[in-house]
Design a protein around this nucleic acid. Structure first.
Length: 480
RNA sequence: GUCCCCAUCGUCUAGCCUGGCCUAGGACGCCGGCCUUUCAAGCCGGCAACACGGGUUCGAAUCCCGUUGGGGACACCA
């Protein structure tokens, strides 16, 4: 059995987008499952549009989602000599010819054909001219077969038959000496001994154009698989209009790479009713025959849900690791340095079921750092009032009588006080919540206290009490 | 215009190959309820789909043909 070799071959003309990542993922999953080889190849033969920043973006994106490659990254621009050699081979074999039609002429004829309702194909004008040594600028064209048919047995779509008469003679070498896509892919896929070419749906009709080139060059023809596209909510091809499409944008928004991988795998592929897969499970369970044939709409809500699932179930330590850089970036470097990793993990557990992204988590976690509480003004105004000050003070006294924090004891003391004062739970809970966190929404009060610890809980209660009393004077002066 | 692909709830999908277990299952979202010190989470329930038309068959989401609709390709882009 020969070893499986697959590749991801993006062109570096922008950031790495969601669709590209999914194509890479399916290739990667198959490679890992089959103990094969995953090759990364940069298709940068379009001099005008390719940039180094884009190459870096591809590499960064692949690394972030953890799709590691075994060979490459290869750059086609470093392999130009190779393509020329093989192009010359075709010329010598009589399977390619020089074409001196200028791009302008071609464009004109194409438009004419279209106006007449004909196929805008190359008319084969130079095919039988037999130009040996072109004296002017010339491109090299492949002599495509004109009869018979080409059969592609696609891994995803099944058997597809193309009539060769719909093919035209495509340019394989531009007049500037650079190969075109349909030629360089063939040479590279052959030379890199790719066994399974898996790419976007949009390449499906390129396949019957490429197969004859493999054959003319005497290369074995690989298997092909064409992945359906990813659409935006309006069912048009996913693009910037639909919001974030760059993979790194999701990192910025606080998504976990594992959630992204899980979501993308499940978009267009399924394994029964299962929704959540570990990376290892994906590798084990992936299969071409459960890849959907039709395009899929990208659903940010479901991704968000999955991200939350991962935030809730990942080991807190690993979340801490992702979170810390975000806290630092939010200007809390000193605060983070002052606490232990263990405490941070505790904090993550405290808030994780109400944070769908790491960015959410930063927001939720900030009140627990530092000595002073930053009150939400509206919350403080509403709940830290002179009316609650006496109860707050009694609570503080009770808590102070405990030498250490104990969740059941403190909770019991709290409830007793509420009862004695003839209050409702919420009447004291909300002011305490604001005192402890500065906000009206938080995790369970006693869980908050546990994370804060005895001293800081008492301290914040004191601060809250002060504020409650202070607002009395404010009220009084306002009344006057 | 020509060629190719595709078609199950709003969305992702199971089922289709190997017809009956499908009065079509799950998930996201949405709606309602329970729980509850807030916000979540959790639990329970609900709404919601086989594009259409012909066949084949005792029986079709499943097989065949057609129609319609959507998408892709037809560059000296990839």
């Amino acid at each position: 059995m020969t070893q499986i070799r697959v590749r991801f071959a993006p062109s570096p003309t922008g950031f790495l987008h969601i669709g590209g990542v999914r194509t890479a993922l399916f290739n990667w999953l198959y490679a890992r499952q089959q103990k094969g080889v995953f090759v990364l190849r940069i298709e940068d033969t379009d001099q005008g549009r390719s940039t180094d920043e884009s190459i870096q973006a591809i590499i960064d994106g692949m690394r972030w989602v953890g799709l590691d490659w075994d060979e490459g990254p290869f750059r086609q621009t470093e392999r130009i000599a190779l393509y020329r050699d093989y192009a010359m081979k075709l010329l010598i074999q009589g399977q390619a010819y020089w074409c001196v039609c200028t791009p302008e002429e071609l464009e004109g004829r194409r438009r004419e054909a279209e106006a007449k309702g004909l196929s805008p194909r190359y008319d084969g004008r130079c095919r039988n001219l037999g130009i040996k040594e072109p004296t002017e600028e010339a491109a090299l064209r492949f002599k495509a077969p004109q009869e018979g048919h080409t059969v592609v047995d696609d891994l995803i779509k099944g058997k597809i038959v193309f009539e060769n008469q719909v093919l035209d003679d495509l340019i394989i070498l531009r007049s500037n000496g650079y190969p075109t896509y349909n030629f360089s892919v063939v040479v590279d896929d052959a030379l890199m001994r790719i066994t399974h070419v898996v790419r976007g749906d949009d390449h499906l009709t390129n396949t019957p154009r490429q197969v004859p080139i493999f054959e003319a060059l005497g290369f074995p023809v690989p298997r092909f698989g064409h992945l359906p596209m990813i659409l935006g909510s309006d069912k048009t091809r996913l693009s910037k209009r639909h919001g974030a499409t760059s993979i790194m944008a999701y990192k910025e928004m606080g998504y976990l790479p594992e959630a992204m991988v899980n979501y993308l795998a499940r978009l267009g592929w399924s394994h029964g009713d299962q929704e959540v897969f570990s990376r290892q499970e994906l590798i084990e369970k992936f299969s071409w025959d459960h890849v959907q044939k039709s395009a899929a709409v990208f659903n940010p809500e479901k991704l968000l849900w999955l991200n939350h699932e991962y935030i809730k179930t990942s080991p807190p330590d690993s979340i801490v690791q992702e979170l810390v850089p975000l806290l630092v970036r939010a200007g809390m470097e000193d605060e983070v340095r002052a606490v232990s990793k263990e405490w941070l993990a505790q904090l993550v557990v405290l808030v994780r079921e109400r944070t769908k992204t790491l960015t959410d988590m930063v927001m939720w976690v900030t009140p627990y750092f530092g000595q002073r509480v930053a009150y939400d003004e509206e919350a403080a105004k509403k709940y830290l009032t002179p009316t609650v000050a006496p109860a707050l003070e009694k609570l503080l006294n009770r808590f102070q009588s405990f030498p250490a924090f104990s969740k059941p004891e403190w909770e019991e003391a709290f409830k007793q006080l509420v009862e004695q004062e003839g209050m409702k739970m919420g009447q004291l809970a909300q002011p305490v919540r604001v005192a402890l966190t500065g906000r009206t929404a938080s995790p369970g009060l006693f869980d908050v206290m546990e994370v804060l610890g005895r001293e800081r809980t008492l301290d914040r209660l004191r601060q809250g009490l002060e504020r409650a009393r202070a607002s009395a004077t404010t009220d009084a002066s306002a009344a006057r």
